[in-house]
Design a protein around this nucleic acid. Structure first.
Length: 404
RNA sequence: GGUUCCGUGGCCGAGUGGCUAGGCUGAGCUCUGCAAAAGCUCCUACAGCGGUUCGAAUCCGCUCGGAACCUCCA
């Protein structure tokens, strides 16, 4: 009997908002896609939390005996500064500011990203595709969407027609948004806007003469939009329908909503069975983000050099700190919380070192203790299988260490 | 304004109808020549007001407070 049969996993599906029992499409196999970083700057601690969440989840699936294909992309193009129609490509901007080739920017920050994940003891994904390596596929799917009448070209750019899509499908299915509300609120469609509807989004953007990152397409030189890469890469490596799609809460809308629309529009079927969203890391109750200026980098945390920090903490302490909360809750960062985690982690590490040293004569151990340990071990599995409740597991681990 | 979600003891943070979460801090104790380390014990909460129920932190309603998303964001 496989472990996953003994401890079936249930997980909170953002699509339904409910906890569901995990049922893989192919028995014994799990296909999982997670939105990776856009490599135009250093990853900060908030980013780390998301990748750590899915590191744990993929490890746990494997541990239970599933064969996992874990795909996590690197976004090395796209993502404009402001919105659909204005602004500069983030990577191109960084390249201009630092007087580098875009590919140099991409390489720098990709390596930095990998280095950080290594420091936090995360395993690499099975496949790590990049957006620029899949331009052809992105053009193909864009063409298909035009053929199906769900996208239109204007001046060398191609947009997804959301209201058209919404006629036969439900655009707000993931985020609970209603298209009428979206049409009313927010930014107005100004006269120079190319989009037919304000809710439409770009699949392909025309490159201005100054734009460095550009590829030829049926619509002229340009670059892909920001949602299409994930649709292309996930379905290419995991199939038109796959098990799990993960990412940060802040990607739920519009990014993941658009992914669904593109995939359903192009392939005619729902791409993902289970959507998983990890919650934000906060500082003083506010989301850690670059634009708010309250983010800090892993190396600042290790060294304790950031002004918000009393002292430095090791990567494993940080990892433990994050695992003490549930991935779906916001986690507030503070010096007190880190100190608490440091002490707790040390305790568990000592207990583990002790176990490794002590020789346990199998049969002669007090059976009462053995029974109890087995019960607690099973508790760990039950908790992890219950929506990956690592916080609960840590409590059991402390209980175990107290019995040694 | 709309969507989603949250409000647990000094702090952090699990818990989704009945049973002690856990960690950190603090207090006391044990051990010890003193100290350190370690162990044990104690501090028993669920924003407020109603409702459902034999029974609610847990379900429903309202009020208050907070967050994320609606622009790039993990």
């Amino acid at each position: 009997m496989k472990l996953y049969e003994q401890f079936p996993i249930s997980l909170t599906n953002s699509l339904s908002g409910k906890k569901e029992v995990f049922q893989p499409i192919n028995p014994g196999h799990v296909g999982m896609y997670v939105c990776g970083p856009t490599v135009y700057s250093d990853v900060h601690l908030g980013n780390v939390r998301t990748f750590l969440t899915f590191d744990i989840i993929s490890r746990y699936f494997r541990h239970l005996g599933y064969k996992v294909r874990y795909v996590r992309n690197i976004t090395d193009v796209g993502h404009l500064e402001n919105d659909a129609d204005e602004g500069e490509d983030k990577i191109a901007k960084k390249a201009r500011l630092e007087q580098l080739e875009p590919m140099e920017v991409v390489k720098n920050y990709t390596e930095g990203f990998h280095e950080v994940l290594r420091q936090f003891n995360m395993l690499p994904p099975s496949i790590e595709p990049t957006a620029t390596a899949h331009i052809v596929e992105q053009i193909e799917i864009t063409k298909r969407l035009i053929e199906k009448g769900l996208a239109y070209e204007v001046n060398g750019s191609v947009y997804f027609d959301v209201p058209k899509y919404n006629e036969a499908h439900d655009y707000g299915i993931l985020s609970g948004r209603k298209i009428e509300d979206l049409m009313e609120s927010g930014r107005k469609l100004d006269s120079q806007d190319e989009k037919r509807n304000k809710v439409d989004f770009a699949l392909w953007k025309k490159a201005s003469p100054a734009h460095i990152m550009r590829w030829p397409s049926p619509w002229g030189d340009g670059f892909p939009g920001w949602h299409i890469e994930c649709t292309v890469m996930s379905t290419k490596y995991l199939g038109e329908t796959f098990d799990i799609h993960g990412g940060g809460m802040d990607l739920k809308f519009p990014h993941h909503e658009c992914e669904i629309a593109q995939a359903v529009g192009a392939n005619g079927k729902d791409p993902v069975h289970y959507w998983l969203h990890s919650n934000m890391l906060t500082v003083n109750g506010q989301k850690m983000s670059k634009s708010l200026g309250n983010s800090f980098l892993p190396r600042e945390l290790f060294a304790g050099t950031h002004s918000l920090l009393d002292k430095g903490y090791s990567p494993m302490t940080v990892r433990f700190f994050m695992l003490q909360s549930h991935y779906s809750s916001t986690l507030d960062f503070s010096n007190e919380a880190m100190q608490s985690a440091e002490k707790g982690f040390k305790k568990l590490a000592q207990a583990l070192a002790y176990i490794k040293k002590v020789e346990v004569p199998k049969a002669s151990v007090a059976s009462e203790l053995t029974t109890e340990m087995n019960r607690m071990a099973a508790d760990c599995y039950t908790s992890m299988s219950d929506d990956f409740n690592s916080a609960k597991v840590s409590a059991v681990l402390f209980e175990m260490s107290a019995r040694l």
